[in-house]
Each structure stands twice: as structure tokens, then as C-alpha cells.
Design a protein around this nucleic acid. Sequence first.
DNA 1: GAATTTTATGAGATATATGTCAATTAATCG
DNA 2: CGATTAATTGACATATATCTCATAAAATTC
Lengths: 247, 247
Amino acid sequence: MRYMSINRLALCGSQIGVLFLTSLDLFTREARNLGKSARTKARLMDAAVSVFARDGFEAASVNEITRAAEVANGTFYVYFKDKDEIATAVAYRIAHDVVQQLDGAMVGVSDAVERVSCATRRLLDLATSTPQWGQALFRAVWIYNDLRDSVVSYLRADLERGVAQGVFTVEIDDFLISTFSAMTMSTLFRRLNGEAGPDAGSRVAQLQLRMLGVAPDVAKRVAFQALDPITLTMPVIPREMDRSKKN
Amino acid sequence: MRYMSINRLALCGSQIGVLFLTSLDLFTREARNLGKSARTKARLMDAAVSVFARDGFEAASVNEITRAAEVANGTFYVYFKDKDEIATAVAYRIAHDVVQQLDGAMVGVSDAVERVSCATRRLLDLATSTPQWGQALFRAVWIYNDLRDSVVSYLRADLERGVAQGVFTVEIDDFLISTFSAMTMSTLFRRLNGEAGPDAGSRVAQLQLRMLGVAPDVAKRVAFQALDPITLTMPVIPREMDRSKKN
DNA sequence: GAATTTTATGAGATATATGTCAATTAATCG
DNA sequence: CGATTAATTGACATATATCTCATAAAATTC
């Protein structure tokens, strides 16, 4: 599955740097050196990502998750109170990874117009490179408001920077952020459903820049310019991951 | 509930004309002169609107619908095969009403910029004036693609008109339509959740116009100008509504 | 390797949803 | 009014989901 990124790279020649969100069994891998209980919990979380991506949060059932994780039904309740608890656990973790990767991908970019455009494009590339996680992110963002807020926190800063630089001529507030995000998320949705191609990121970035007040020719140039190679793409460092779980 | 429109009118003084989507028990009223079976079916559909709006399509159950309609569980299955069938029935009807009302509200407007702005603003006013129907519309649009297409069919025409007039400098295709719609729907969502005020329609229309290539000052003026009074706001005419139901 | 602690299991109690149908009630008609 | 047709009912069979808990298995400790 990770190899999809490579394929996409071949299709979209201009793109040299690629962000890796995570492999499908990230949690399991991270926990491979930890105790047994941590490993089981990790398998459940990986399974939850798959099931949420396939069925959505609503339709997903604990049974499906335990079946996917190949553990007994009762095992689930050893580690999580209910479906919501595991949902928040994986959703927040995905958001955390996304923010971290995006931050890392933009260390060298200082121009507000470029930053805003890059963020949108890279978020889309990232979420599309591992569709399961992309789906989970998409669904989670609709449900958890504070999670959405954390994902867009850097966005607000970039938008305000642009206003300060005089390149954005629009009032920055919750309404704008929300509309901006909706454009990105709608594109992610279409991208994941195969209704939009690899240039969707650039197209929506272009529209967003125009909306913000960037001149059409500049918007086009920046949104479609080749992305710089990623400087740091080191895999996520395995972390402790709260092994004491008996609440 | 219908009186909310009046309150909103008071808050937003510039608005003289108001579109009425429908009252909460539209189907029942329409069927009041029809046979008993048509009336029962209508009660179920009104109940379905309430339940879908409250719980969403996924979480809604047939039991909840029959309870709201004050009929026995078995009665439901006399009129509908399952939840999906009643869902499509009410969803398509709402979309039909919306399109009809919007068309009527824009008979006098010929300028593409004004038409696009008006459509967004009036759709939002319409859907917000009867929140239950607005919620149902919002959820339905996510689920039924062809329904969304029908709601935005007039939009595509207006956008192409604007390109022909030289006021929109953007490529009109499915991607643009979808992004444009996402902006409107996101605003509807926030409006229904109380996260955005009555000016949200104008604000999003302004952003949309900028995105399409309209100069910022023009976009602002058109999006925030007072809406013309509605010329025709006659209530929906009670119609036959397929009384022969034995499939 | 026996004792102890940790982890996993799956049957089962509880709940809720779907869809059917024989029986009942209401409406209509001659 | 009695007969016939239309409409409604709610119990029931079926299915699926949640969460618990006594028991079993596995891992760890001494």
C-alpha cells in the first residue's frame, strides 16, 4: 500500500518530494517492542482505522473491529470503553501526524502565498497517499471540532501572515477558515472517491488563493508550481504510548 | 416554526422578500383532501423529515419514524420498502421544492454575477428558515449525487453565462461546481448549527465571487446588496402525489 | 517448575432494529 | 345493514450490536 506513493510519483513527474503519512499497520509496528498489552491495543487501533475508513464512524461496529484485529470481542473492552474512545484515539493520532508532517514539509517556506498553497496541496497528497488514513481523517474532521481546529491552527497563522504582508485582502476569522477548510476537505473527498485527479490539489489551491485576494495569474503560478523536495521525511519515532492503561 | 422567518426578517432589516420552503407538516397538508392511505403516507414522510433532521439518515430508525408519525411499526412497510425508500422520497421532494423556489426568486435577475450571488444567499435563507428541512437537505445532498446535481444544475448555467459575459475568469467543470457547492453547504452547516449569523450567506457569496474572478470591490457590493422582494411566493399547490400505491 | 500475575476468551444477558403476517378495525358499497 | 374491500395493528421471528464476567491461556516471577 505504501507503494502507491511511488506510483503516484511516476504519474506526477514534477513531484519529487513525497510525504509519508503512515503505513497501514503503524500502531502495530510502533508497539512491536513493547509489552503484549500495548501490542494488542495497537492491533485494535490499526483495525479501527481500516473499519472506520471502510464503513464510516457511524456504521462501524466493535465486532467488525475485533474481527479485523483477529481478537475476541471481549478483548476490545479490556482496552477501550466503547467505540467512541478508540475513535478519538486514532483520530487524534492521525491529526497529530498530519500536522507534524505538514510542519516539517514547510520549514523553508516563508512567503504566505506559497505556504497556504503548499499546505493545501501537501495535505491532499498526504491523505491520498494512504487512502485508508485519508478517509479516516476526512470523517474524523467532520466529527471532532477540536481536532479540526488543531489541523487548521497553522493555517490561521499563515493567513494572518498573508494579511500582514498585504497579499491577502480578506478578513480572517472562523468563518473564513471554515470555508477555506471546506474547500480542501471537499477536494479530499473527491480525490479519495476517484472523482478528481492528481491536479486537484493545485486546482483548489488556485481557487483558494483567488478567494483570498491573490491576483489570478499569481494564484495560478504558485498553485501549479512544482513542490520543493521534502527535506525531512524521517518515519515517526516509536514512542511510549501510555502503557499503563488500567484507568 | 414558520414564524422564525419573521424573526429573522426583523433582525435583518434589509431583507424584504422571504422564501418559504415549507411548513413542518407539508406532506400531511397536501394530502388533507386525498384518500386515507395518501394521508398516512404523508404523515410518515413528515415524520421522516423530522427524524432525519434530528438523528441523521444513518442513525434514524423506522421505529422512530413510526413513533413520530403515531402509527404502528407495521404500517410503515405498507407504504415503503425500507428506510432508503422513504429517504429518497423526501429528499427528492425537498430538492424539487428548493429548485422551484430558487428559480422563481430569480426570474428578474439577468446579470450572472447577481444570479450566482442571489442563488447562494437565497438557498441559505431558504434552508435556514425551516431548519428541519435545511438539515434534511444538507444530509441528503451528501448522500444522493444526482440530487445534488439537480440542485446545482441551474448554477452551472449561471456560471457559464458569467464566463460568456467575461465576468468569471475560471474554467467551469465538475471540480469547480463541486468546490463552489462545498462552500455553500459548509455555510449551511454552520448556519444550522448556530456557528454563523445571518450575514453568512453574503459572506460566502462574496468569497465565491472573488474565487470566480470578480473584482473584490464588485464582489463585496453585489454579495451584500439588499435582496429584491420576491415577486412570486405562492405556496406549493397540492398535487396528486401518486395515490395508486400498490406496486 | 510451581505460583502468581497479566492477558485473552467467548458464551450470554440485554437491548434495539428489521421486516412479516394473521388478525383486527375502519371505510365503502350495494 | 350486511358484505366486501381497504387500512392498520402489534406480536413475533430474525438479526445484529453492546458490554460483562467467569474462566482459560499465556507470561512472568520466584
